[in-house]
């Protein structure tokens, strides 16, 4: 699906499948808003969490899109705190 998915698979992400239509729609939405640096995976036991990988300075813009992202079929919209481009 994307580099994040391929490099850091988690059981939940694998469960959600590489052809999850929600993720495809999510990537489209992010592209429409010019958020080309953002990657997304579906995690959680039922793939109910959209986990976004993005630089921290994009957090406000992503928060503004949270409701729209939930409408794609996610219960929660989150930022992965360890994949932000910041050296932890």
């Amino acid at each position: 699906m994307n580099d994040e998915f391929e490099q850091q698979p988690s059981p939940a992400a694998e469960d959600s499948g590489g052809d999850d239509p929600r993720l495809a729609a999510l990537q489209d939405l992010l592209q429409q808003h010019g958020l080309l640096e953002v990657r997304a995976v579906a995690v959680g036991s039922r793939g109910e969490i959209a986990a976004l990988t993005a630089p921290l300075h994009l957090a406000d813009r992503l928060a503004e899109l949270a409701t729209a992202i939930k409408r794609l079929g996610f219960l929660y919209v989150t930022l992965d705190l360890e994949n932000t481009g910041v050296d932890t």
Binding site: S10, A59, L62, A66, T67, Y76, T78, L79, D80, E82
Partner: peptide, 9 residues
């Protein structure tokens, strides 16, 4: 925990 996520809402 394997992942730590911040809820944007």
């Amino acid at each position: 925990f394997e992942r730590v996520l911040l809820d944007l809402q």
